[in-house]
Design a protein around this nucleic acid. Structure first.
Lengths: 226, 226
DNA sequence: GGCGCGGTCGGACGTTCGTCCGAAGCCGAG
DNA sequence: CTCGGCTTCGGACGAACGTCCGACCGCGCC
C-alpha cells in the first residue's frame, strides 16, 4: 500500500482527462494533440506515459473496468438472498456509471476500438462481468418462464448501459433513484414474465413480413439534402 | 410512384454497403477508400452520389430512420388498446432492427458523428420517435407508480437498442421471439412496479458513498501492460 | 453520324494524424 | 556544486485521410 508516486498521479490525471475527451469526441475523432492541449502536456511528452494511443484507451478501459469489478464484488458480499443481490448489483453498477460517466461511456461505446491483445484482455474482464450479472439474474427467473437467461441479462445491461445516451443529472433522478426504478422495473418484469409459449400464437398469425428498408432512397430526396 | 432509376438503385446499393462498413469498422475509422473497394466504384466516382462523407452518413441515417417511422406508424394503426399498441411497437422496432442491423447499428452508435444541419435533421426525427414511444409507454404506467415516464421510456430503448452489442441470429431467438420476451419483461415490469417512494427508505440508509474511480492506476500496472 | 449529357475515373492537393528522435530541463543524492 | 536519472519538449517524418479537378466514356436523340 505505497503512496502513489508523482508518476502515478500524473498518469491518473491524464487517464481522467483523456476519458472525458474520448467520451465527448469519440476515440478515433479525438487526436493526441487534443489530449496534449487539454492536459497541458506536450505532444511528445504524453508518450512517456503510454506507448500508443491505443494503449491509452486500453489503460482507461482496464482501470475503469477493474474498479467496477472491485466495487461490485465488495457490495455483493453484504447482500443475502437473490433479490437483494440483484438490487445491490444494479445499484452499484448505476452508481458507478453515473459517478464515472466519461469512463463508462468510453468503456461502453468504444468497445470495438481495441484490437489484438488489448481487446482480448478487456473482453476477458467483460466476460467475467457478464457471467457475474447473469449469475444474479438467473436465480430470479420463474421456473416456468419462457424468458431465457441470456436475453434477460442483456436486456438488463441495455437498460443500464444505455443511460449515457440520455441521462442528464440536472433533469433526471440521481443514481439511487435511477437504480431503484430500474431494479423495480426489471425485477417485477422477471416475476411477472411467465407467459408460456403456447398462449401467444393467437395474438397475430399472419403478420410475418420482412421489415427491410423498402423505401427507395430517391424518395427521400424530396425532403431535400441539407 | 415512378420506378426507381438506375441512379436510385446504385445509390441505394452504396448506402447499403456503406452502412455495413460503418457498422463493422465505425464511421470515422472507415475510409472512403474502403467504401470504394467494397462497392467497386472508384474513389472520385463515389462523390457523384454524395458530396461528403458526412452526407453519406446522413443519408444512411435518414433513410433508415424514415423507413422505421413509416413501418411503426403503419403497424400502430391496426393496434387497439394500450398494451397491444406497446407490444406492436416493440415487435416492429425489434423486427426492423434485426432485419436492418447494420443500418440500425450505425443509427444508434454513430448518433454523435453528425454536426450542424445534418445532426439537427436526424435529431428531429429522433425526438419524434421518442415522443411516439413515450406515448405508448405512458398509458401503461400505474397511477400510483414512482416510475417516471422518461426513465421507463429510455429503459425500453436501452433494452431494445443494446442488442447490436450482443445479438447473434444463430444462437439467439429470432426477432419475433426477442420481441415477445422483451415485451413480456417490460410490460410486466410496468404493471408490477408500483412501489411507493415511502417504503424503500428502510432498505438502506447509510450506504451513500461516492463510487469514484479510487484505485490508483499504478496498482493496475502489476497486472502488466500488454 | 455527330452532339450532349449523365456517369465514371486517375491522379493529385493540402491537411491532419500517430509516432519518434535527440536534446534539454529539473531535482534530489552525494 | 556536480552528477545522473527521471521527465519534458520542439520539431520533424511518413502515412493516410477527405476532397476535387479535368478528362474520358457510352449511349440515346436529333
Amino acid at each position: 500500500m505505497d503512496e502513489p508516486t508523482r508518476y502515478d498521479e500524473k498518469l491518473g490525471e491524464i487517464l481522467r482527462q483523456s476519458a472525458t475527451i474520448f467520451a465527448d469526441r469519440g476515440f478515433h475523432q479525438a487526436s493526441v494533440r487534443d489530449i496534449s492541449a487539454e492536459t497541458g502536456v506536450s505532444l511528445s511528452g504524453l508518450y512517456y506515459y503510454f506507448k500508443s494511443k491505443e494503449e491509452l484507451l486500453f489503460l482507461i478501459q482496464q482501470h475503469c473496468f477493474e474498479s467496477l469489478l472491485v466495487q461490485v464484488a465488495a457490495g455483493l458480499e453484504g447482500a443475502v438472498g437473490p433479490e437483494a443481490r440483484l438490487r445491490t448489483l444494479i445499484e452499484i453498477h448505476l452508481g458507478f456509471f453515473v459517478a464515472n460517466m466519461p469512463e463508462m461511456k468510453v468503456l461502453s461505446h468504444e468497445a470495438d476500438a481495441l484490437a489484438g491483445e488489448y481487446a482480448a484482455r478487456v473482453l476477458g474482464l467483460k466476460r467475467d462481468y457478464v457471467a457475474l450479472v447473469r449469475g444474479c439474474v438467473e436465480p430470479l427467473l420463474p421456473p416456468d418462464t419462457s424468458l431465457d437467461a441470456r436475453t434477460a441479462t442483456f436486456a438488463l445491461f441495455g437498460q443500464m448501459n444505455w443511460i449515457y445516451n440520455w441521462y442528464r443529472p440536472s433533469r433526471d433522478p440521481d443514481a439511487a433513484g435511477l437504480a431503484r426504478q430500474m431494479a423495480d422495473l426489471f425485477i417485477a418484469g422477471l416475476h411477472g414474465a411467465r407467459g408460456s409459449a403456447a398462449d401467444d400464437a393467437a395474438d397475430d398469425g399472419s403478420d410475418e413480413e420482412k421489415r427491410a428498408l423498402d423505401v427507395a432512397p430517391g424518395a427521400l430526396g424530396a425532403g431535400g439534402a441539407l
